[in-house]
Simulated scan of single mutants.
Amino acid sequence: MEDEQLTIFDETRNPIGIAAREEIHRLGYWHETFHCWFIHNEKGIDYLYLQLRSPLKKDYPNLYDITVAGHLLASETVQDGIREIKEEVGVDLSFEDLIPLGIIEYCAEKEAFIDKELAHTFLYKSEKPFDDFILQEDEVAGMVKVEFAQFAELWNGERDTIKVTGFEMRDGRKSFFEREVGQDQFVPHQIPFYKSVINGIKKNI
């Protein structure tokens, strides 16, 4: 995976070449990713579906994250990013099923890891109960749902914790749970990133 070849960009989003994923994160090159947020209306309440990252992940293990996300290879178009949905959560969609929310810039640094993403971001209005997902367990350990209104309040600084309900895979079986979580239990995307996503979703539900 660290040898994956990705297109790299300058600060004004102009492509400047191709580099290996490991080099990109070590040197901090801008690169493209595919993000898709699933939202589901249940009895008049909008819920976001979030993934629990696998403990095997090199980056941000055991944290809650975007429903589906992944890197776009140098050989891929944005439309090809749809493969991530099938691979990670077992849902077969077409690109036309998605609502585009735009390209959101995201940058995070920790130790020798610099992640500078041009995230092609999409929304999918799901009719699928989250406990029906088939997970790629080396990538995704579980799925949860959270009221979208609470999620927005968390990242707008209006509450300290939110309730997540879902399951995680243990020895091939789903173990269901409900718990209160705070910002520190999510992948540390910058708060402006979360706010941009929230505003984009609000305009499309």
Rank of each mutant, 00 (worst) to 15 (best):
Y106Q: 14
S126L: 05
V181F: 09
N156Q: 10
V146T: 12
D131M: 08
Q183E: 13
P188I: 14
D132A: 08
K110M: 05
F151N: 05
L154N: 09
T165A: 02
E180H: 12
T161F: 06
F193E: 00
K174H: 07
I191M: 04
E158A: 04
P188V: 13
M143C: 02
V164R: 07
N156D: 03
E105Q: 08
L154E: 10
R173A: 12
V197F: 10
V187P: 00
V140S: 08
G142W: 14
Q183L: 12
K163F: 03
F193G: 00
S196E: 13
F130A: 04
E147K: 15
V187S: 03
E111L: 09
H189Y: 13
D132P: 00
F151K: 09
I114W: 03
I162S: 02
F193S: 01
E139I: 13
T165S: 09
Q183V: 15
K163H: 06
F148H: 10
S126C: 07
T165F: 03
H189I: 02
I114V: 13
D132I: 10
V146K: 09
F148M: 08
S196K: 14
E168A: 07
H120K: 08
A141M: 11
V146C: 12
E178K: 09
Y106G: 10
I198M: 02
T161D: 04
Q150Y: 11
E147W: 10
K125S: 05
S175G: 01
S196M: 10
T165I: 14
K195R: 15
L123E: 05
Y194A: 01
E109Y: 07
K110V: 10
F122W: 11
H189C: 01
K116W: 09
W155G: 02
E109M: 05
P129K: 12
F176K: 03
T121P: 01
Q190R: 02
R179V: 12
H120S: 11
V181Q: 05
V197Q: 06
Q190E: 02
D132G: 00
I198D: 01
V140P: 09
R173E: 14
E178Q: 13
Q183D: 05
V197D: 02
Q183A: 09
F113C: 05
G157E: 09
S126M: 06
D160W: 07
S126G: 08
F133C: 11
V181C: 02
F167P: 00
E137G: 01
I191V: 13
F193L: 02
D138Q: 12
E178A: 12
K145R: 15
A112I: 14
V197H: 08
K116R: 15
D131P: 01
E111P: 00
A141K: 14
E153D: 15
A108L: 08
V181E: 06
Y106I: 07
I198A: 02
P129R: 13
Y106A: 11
R159C: 13
E139P: 00
A152H: 04
G157W: 14
E168P: 00
E117S: 02
E168V: 11
K174C: 02
S175Q: 06
D160G: 03
N156W: 07
D132Y: 14
A119R: 15
E158R: 10
